[in-house]
Design a protein around this nucleic acid. Structure first.
Lengths: 205, 205, 205, 205
DNA sequence: AATGAATGAGATTTCATTCAT
DNA sequence: TATGAATGAAATCTCATTCAT
């Protein structure tokens, strides 16, 4: 939190150092996406990033910290995109709101596939990073669904916690499949299906 | 099951050998479920199973083979349970059919949590075992949804491949959460929510 | 030594047991010939022989004893063949005598290639069996060459110990090559060359 | 040899790394010579070389690669010594030429006994390194003998391939004996005997 | 600050040998 | 006596981490 303290000389001000860091993050994202945390080695990351092994350790204490950083950054960016999408669609009807966030989600996966895969594949039982797939922000959605339910606009025997998590987890996983499958359905068709199956749309009263 | 008519003495008919194998599988399931493939070591499995290190290697070439075996066996048992449930509900109305399979799925997870977690957590990007979470038999469900769609009983702009995978992946993940969360919703409420959000129910015409 | 003492019940009288022993010796010869002592494992020998692992140990204390037995038996048979050949050619001229023993040697290699290869390849620096290639009976030949030298029929500045070992080692190795090479020279040509280069022939006065 | 013009810093130009490598090669030669490939362990080599276990593996993938390297290097050095000897004696009479190469061979064995033993004992049936004992450069000698034979200076019913291999194999093995025997014949007497039994000398017309 | 050679703890794997059946 | 499952000591090998340059 008190990150701005203790900048001994120049910190992120050093351009060379920042380049190294970015190269490590990029190489790490790529490798983590395709081999998983267990299949990735610090030496390999350093080599792929074109820096020395020792350099890796001047930036991150270990590979898990790198993964955590990627997940944290990625999750923040994703949250950002979703919030913006939601905000912009605020005054539209419910289904359009849902479509806006789903679209933003799909676009994020499409635009940053490596980061996306790191976030949603990092769900090894041992993963130190929070389990994104089910844990990913179900709170906000759960809360929204609750409101709808109280307003009588959502099936009353739905458990909103379960519904939120079911959709989030499914959405997270399906995009991993969408990114990897050789002959994926078109973006619009994918989005349309996700929207239809979103609890707020599917179980609306 | 009347295999025990003595198959020449060699073969896996040997009872001592079979006991070892079962002990290893049981210990492996437990450890894999809680630590993931990267966090378990052959030594640890052997110790937990109460056998020597070497014994492990007379049964499996390495820990990945053990994991694969557990996934394969577990998946077969799960398929079996689902098929049986579906068969028994064949003549009932659609929603009852869906409820039957969802219930069977939930019961499987509840009754064999370790195996369940191995199957649905083995989805490391590098997982050698087929990726259960999204890959888990979406074919059968996809086919069923197609029929409904052709019969005009399912929303026509739904991509059945996506719908099937979305539900399956979500269902697989949510049960991991249900098994692990400290204060889980009751079984009936969980099942009810899953049924309502099943594509065949949620998007029926 | 006192082998005939302590025949507790029936020893080589048991035909089944003797069959096992022969199967182990045969399988062992084949495997040792093609993989060397370091590349052969007791389990593998037992399997190739079609007996249980434990059975191997009721016949030999370890694989080195098996090798030693094969080398000893083979060497005895070889010595026998050479002695017989020498005896039968005793009254013939020197070159015919040499030809007789060389022929016998070549025939032995040709007729029992596996045993031959075990004997003459067992020359790993660590081999427990005596190093056949240079050690193989150079005494007899050395003695014979000495006699010729004293009789003025052999070059006097030849070291007979070296000469005997040189020829024996060369002969032993060349037959390994002859057995293994895809397009070997015919037997007669091989023998003729060996005879010509035998010290007693090549350096005769 | 003027490689030292600094090749970018990486590469084997690194002096520390090169020292490690040489220590491993030296320790490996000694151990392989006295215990054979089956009797040496990577741990032992590393310890004898005074480096860590891991260091061994940064230089060679396994102990067989070390052996192969030693054989390759040694064989190259030997070839070099023989070529030089032959070149320097080119204008001398045949017997002197033979004596020159035989002397060079003996000197090589005497000066680098460990390497010599590695090369000529590495002839386990499974040896991964080319079988030095019979395979050692018989081509050059074979060719030389062919010329003599065509020129009518060598017995015409000699198979030059066999003759070359016989002498080479015998020479290779006899020096192993010479290095190991407690009371070896003097160098001059050894060389004289080898020269006399060399095909080109022994069977000259 | 960057580097990469060296390191060794620990994981994996092999295989000779034992022993209950 | 024959068997082969079990065993664990010992070997192989990996890889995160350190540290001298």
């Amino acid at each position: 939190m008190s990150e701005s303290i203790n900048i001994s000389k120049k910190q992120s001000g050093n351009p060379k150092r920042e380049i190294s860091r970015q190269r490590i993050l990029a190489a790490g994202a790529e490798l983590l996406a395709s081999h998983g945390i267990a299949g990735v080695h610090t030496n390999g990351i350093a080599q792929a990033a074109g820096v020395g092994v020792g350099t890796f350790y001047t930036h991150f204490p270990d590979k898990y910290a790198l993964q955590a950083e990627l997940v944290a950054q990625g999750l923040a960016a994703l949250q950002d995109a979703l919030s913006r999408a939601h905000r912009e669609a605020e005054s539209e009807p419910l289904e359009a709101q849902v479509r806006a966030t789903v679209s933003a989600f799909v676009d994020f996966a499409h635009d940053q596939p490596a980061v996306y895969r790191v976030i949603f594949s990092a769900s090894d039982a041992t993963a130190r990073a929070g389990r994104a797939s089910t844990a990913f922000s179900p709170r906000a959605m759960e809360h929204r669904l609750s409101e709808l339910q109280r307003a009588g606009q959502l099936d009353s025997d739905l458990d909103v916690g379960v519904a939120a998590r079911l959709f989030n987890a499914g959405q997270g996983q399906i995009l991993l499949w969408w990114l990897a499958t050789p002959d994926p359905p078109p973006r619009e068709r994918l989005i349309q299906t996700l929207v239809q199956l979103h609890p707020a749309v599917a179980c609306r009263r």
